[in-house]
Design a protein around this nucleic acid. Structure first.
Length: 766
DNA sequence: CTATGTAAACAAC
DNA sequence: GTTGTTTACATAG
């Protein structure tokens, strides 16, 4: 290391003076309103006619509507309590009859079957799954609310979204849910992550959680002081079971503004984990710095005067974890607890482990457990827009739909089936835009100071909108380094996306793609950049795979762009294209940003995801694990797997973007099952089961029992993501998909998206 | 191979 | 000296 001959020269780094960054903030503000406008009247062509074609065959309550843009495709609204199997059978028959000319693809969406629905709110909730669900609920609600300090995402805005929360908490209580698809229930049993808000980069989260989980396992007993962050109670001699990355997050999130100077981070850690203060070698600080620089989720902001640097967590990646949130009281009943306990901590000394295990014995009350991770969404996204006014017209969201999603199924399923899954890659639409959705009133100092973007804003915005779909894949280049990067970089055409692509292209062979570094790049002169790049590239070729270097791609867009695209406009391109345009057109309102960089902001983002069979081979941002997290949908009960609704700005969709052309026929790209029957059989068919009742058993594997379920946060203003099924009678395949449903113009609805019921749009359904 | 941790070389302040 | 960035290497899984 040190003197290794191989070591390349370190490029000079220079901090650019911040241009005034106003832009970001501005963009965010603008966007909010756009949604409504998007829709075009023209699309409003109602296509109900078709729908009615054979009502008789189908169970009562089913409505079929032609998909506005997808040929031969119809949207089938199925009551929750309907027998999906029979419906599928009927649809299949119908499709076959129609042949290629007629409707042969059906998008099944669940609409609450209010009428038919059994009286109790969620009667079935109590099924066998109960324990599980209960647990989830507990987790969700519990610690979090209490502990959360300033972190709370935004309450007000969240309200709508919060519904689910309450729901989660008391599903039994039976919230008055309406059965609308937008209703949380329908979405699935999503639970909020502890934070209720945040969730975002699932990858990151997952990683973290896993990590934490492990940690926790080791130290179940860790007690957090009530309220805010807990200090590491155990002997100072014991190293906390948290990774540096986690500790940094705890530290940063412990502040109101969610930002902290390096020194404060050190201090916080020392205060909460005496080990570092007394025992750890001084090198731990180096490690902290290393982590800050290494992980994209950590964003450095510089004060206007440039004298002070604050470290923040990229909003889309921030789960607002705080030390106390990490653990929750163990659930005695939960099966998993034992496992957790067993799990080992990564590095602790063996001795420590022993201690830990011993400690495990502590009274249950004292034990704490990690919060479950949010499940990932595994489906691909199909944009559908419902015009507010009328009848239901399904229309793909034209403008820039969320990035799309890719699909996928739970990893297990995937395993069984050999099919290739599309990796969920998210493009974020606009990463360029900073996530800052509406920052609303900006009161941050920074603004005052004149820094345009404050990362903070984004954060807040996120809080409000926070909900990302299950997984976001932050791939895009990192957007925000507030600090120096000239604005140009982001918004500029092809920001991070390019980078990624480029990486993927270039590095395709390398599994671990080094991700573009934080964007600092502005400072280098072009020439220099180029040369640097060259150097880098060479190195990369050789070693890139290992390198954790963030830096490379930064070079001003100039260079990169061409390279990137040059290589291959082909298949992968599409995704990009889609995304980009969107970005450019729409500032951020919706997709936010986020995703900046890749992945989850962790350096490690790996782009080696499963390759999709789809044409686009873009790299998948998500890690395999993430896939696993996604709970499988329950087909039978129409309980499609829960999908998180993206929240407005943040909403980078989780998975992917791979399907760029959803508009046409996305479904094919990701058939999950060879036959509908297969799908149906794959999971327990429990018609009655309550959607919320938690994940289908089959899921279990992935997420641990306690695994989190996705939650729907509040929907973005007028759009929601939900999951549905696509029945393609041509291939006889049935796949889960993510539906991107937009309701243009709904804003006015007091209820807000969440409150909106499908019935609102589709009276018939009722 | 990945994720982490650790150490260190450098650069910019 | 501090803060940041990036390499290199070690290790556990």
């Amino acid at each position: 290391m040190k003197t290794s001959p191989r070591r390349p020269l370190i490029l000079k780094r220079r901090r650019l003076p911040l241009p005034d960054q106003n832009a970001p903030g501005e963009t965010s503000e603008e966007e909010p309103k756009r949604p409504p406008a998007q829709q075009e009247p023209s699309q409003v062509q109602a296509s109900k006619e078709v729908a009615e074609s054979n009502p008789c065959k189908f169970p009562a309550g089913i409505k079929i509507i032609n998909h506005p843009t997808m040929p031969n495709t119809q949207v089938v609204a199925v009551p929750n309590n309907a027998n999906i199997q029979s419906i599928i059978t009927a649809l299949t028959a119908k499709g076959k009859e129609s042949g290629s000319n007629g409707p042969n693809k059906f998008i099944l969406i669940s609409c609450g079957g209010a009428p038919t629905h059994p009286p109790g709110p969620q009667p079935q909730a109590q099924t066998s799954h109960e324990p599980k669900s209960t647990e989830v609920i507990t987790e969700t609600l519990g610690p979090k609310s209490a502990s959360r300090d300033t972190n709370l995402p935004k309450p007000p805005a969240a309200l709508p979204g919060r519904r689910w929360e309450s729901y989660a908490g008391g599903e039994a209580a039976g919230c008055p849910l309406d059965n609308s698809l937008t209703n949380i229930q329908w979405l699935g049993k999503m639970t909020s992550d502890g934070l209720g808000s945040c969730s975002i980069k699932q990858e990151v989260e997952e990683k973290e959680n896993r990590h934490l989980e492990q940690s926790q396992a080791k130290d179940p007993q860790v007690e957090g002081p009530p309220g805010t962050s807990a200090s590491w109670p155990h002997s100072a001699s014991e190293r906390p079971p948290y990774s540096y990355m986690a500790m940094i997050q705890f530290a940063i999130n412990s502040t109101e503004r969610k930002r902290m100077t390096l020194k404060d981070i050190y201090t916080w850690i020392e205060d909460h984990f005496p080990y570092f203060k007394h025992i750890a070698k001084p090198g731990w600080k180096n490690s902290i710095r290393h982590n800050l620089s290494l992980h994209d989720m950590f964003v450095r902001e510089t004060s206007a005067n440039g004298k002070v640097s604050f470290w923040t967590i990229h909003p889309s990646a921030n789960r607002y974890l705080t030390l106390d949130q990490v653990f929750k009281p163990l659930d005695p009943g939960s099966p998993q607890s034992p496992k957790h306990l067993e799990s080992q901590q990564k590095r602790p000394n063996p001795e420590l482990r022993r201690n830990m295990s011993i400690k495990t014995e502590l009274p249950l009350g004292a034990r704490r457990k990690m919060k479950p991770l949010l499940p990932r969404v595994s489906s691909y996204l199909v944009p559908i827009q419902f015009p507010v006014n009328q009848a239901l017209v399904l229309q793909p969201s034209v403008k820039v739909p969320l990035p799309l999603a890719a699909s996928l199924m739970s990893s297990e399923l995937a395993r069984h089936s050999k099919r290739v899954r599309i990796a969920p890659k998210v493009l974020l639409a606009d990463e360029g835009i900073a996530p800052l959705p509406t920052a609303g009133p900006v009161k941050e100092e920074k603004l005052l100071l004149g820094e345009g973007l404050s990362p903070l804003l984004p954060v807040q915005g996120i809080k409000e909108e926070e909900i990302l779909p299950g997984e976001e894949a932050p791939h895009l280049g990192r957007p925000i380094k507030v600090e120096s990067p000239p604005l140009e970089e982001w918004p500029s055409p092809c920001p991070s996306v390019k980078e990624e692509l480029s990486q993927s292209w270039e590095d395709s062979s390398h599994s671990p793609t080094p991700r573009p570094r934080k964007a600092h790049g502005g400072h280098k002169s072009p020439a220099r950049c180029v040369s640097d790049m060259l150097v880098i590239k060479r190195r990369e070729r050789r070693e890139m795979s290992r390198s954790r270097r963030k830096q490379h791609l930064l070079p001003p867009c100039l260079d990169e762009p061409e390279l990137l695209f040059a290589e291959g406009p082909g298949p992968s391109r599409p995704a990009t294209d889609l995304a980009l345009p969107a970005v450019s057109t729409r500032p951020a309102s919706q997709l936010s940003c986020s995703q900046e960089e890749g992945g989850p902001f962790k350096t490690p983002v790996k782009e080696t995801l499963p390759i999709s069979s789809t044409p686009s081979k873009s790299v998948l941002p998500m890690s395999p694990e993430s896939w696993r997290l996604t709970p499988p949908a329950k087909v039978g009960g129409l309980d499609f797997s829960p999908v998180r609704t993206p929240q407005g700005a943040l909403g980078p969709l989780p998975d992917a973007l791979e399907l760029t052309d959803l508009g046409t026929t996305p479904m094919k790209s990701v058939p999950l099952f060879d036959s509908p029957r297969e799908l149906l059989n794959s999971e327990p068919f429990d018609l009655t089961s309550d959607p919320f009742s938690s994940c289908s058993p089959s899921d279990m594997e992935v997420p641990k029992p306690g695994s989190p379920e996705p939650q729907v946060a509040s929907l973005s203003a007028n759009r929601s993501l939900t999951e549905g099924l696509v029945l393609d009678t041509m291939n006889d395949s049935l796949s889960r998909i993510l539906l991107d449903i937009s309701f243009p113009g709904l804003e006015e609805d007091p209820l807000g998206p969440d409150g909106i019921s499908w019935a609102h749009f589709i009276p018939d359904l009722r």
